[in-house]
Design a protein around this nucleic acid. Sequence first.
DNA 1: TCCAACCAGTTGCATCAAACAACCAGGCCG
DNA 2: CGGCCTGGTTGTTTGATGCAACTGGTTGGA
Lengths: 153, 153
Amino acid sequence: MLGRSYESQNCSAARALEIVGERWSLMIIRHALFRGITRFGDFQRSLGVARNVLAARLDLFVEQGLMERQPSSENSAYHDYVLTDMGRELQPVIMALTHWGDRWAAPGDPPVVFRHEHCDGEVRQQTICGDCGQHLAIDEVKAHPTASSMSLA
Amino acid sequence: MLGRSYESQNCSAARALEIVGERWSLMIIRHALFRGITRFGDFQRSLGVARNVLAARLDLFVEQGLMERQPSSENSAYHDYVLTDMGRELQPVIMALTHWGDRWAAPGDPPVVFRHEHCDGEVRQQTICGDCGQHLAIDEVKAHPTASSMSLA
DNA sequence: TCCAACCAGTTGCATCAAACAACCAGGCCG
DNA sequence: CGGCCTGGTTGTTTGATGCAACTGGTTGGA
């Protein structure tokens, strides 16, 4: 029996990847978040994703609570796939991935820049200590297992 | 001919996913970053990943510059897979994924908490406007295509 | 020096995921 | 009412993943 989850891993990143780690998942969320796409056909056209895969992903997103299926308008037979809070809160993940990609995977002018809606300033993500407020470099961050992670090997 | 990249997508998230989007990739990086694992066998045991997949991922990471293969010690035939800056800078992606997972995919006590090494404060990620310095909510961030994204459909 | 245990892969096969093209049923609008 | 649209589904092919066994080399102790 093939494993398709990360069930031996006791970390929330593994749990997250079980939901959004499959091919096209984050791209679909990205298009919903930043291009406002909600319709099946629009996702299909703008992403070039296979219809059976798109249908399966959207089903999973609805089932897991990242999206809701809503009628496109009153009495419409068609529906929109609308992000919930759970889905919208993937924004920092997509932004982090995009910033990394800007620097390392697609250097040169970035195709897309994230901006503050009201003043057009460029958006930054910062890693901060919650106690002393200091900006943290990569080497200053450590992962501490908590009590709840000790119950597994 | 089947497509296996996101080549129709002109965004850096797609480029990034072409490197780190395959199964186990981010988990391997996570173990390298936060558990300090460098040896093939240690990755294999702690992740439970298939050896052929692990070998393929590590090869790709070295080839793409995320890791370097270095002798484990002087005159050793074995080697360490050591993260480069390119690999280390995936930390914000993994932290964002883990924070999302803490809240939405594995609620309850998080198995791992990220802390500031020196003062043990909990690490936070913030989305800030580079101009006015304001903390930004999800709806205040917009993705703006740049000139370089207009050259494609 | 030899041998057991270790290391880092590789191989062949089975299973599953993704992609494709064709198709289907229902909705919509002129 | 018919043509075009929507949102899928289906069967097939191709590629990815996982498994167990295997290979060749390394290491260290007897």
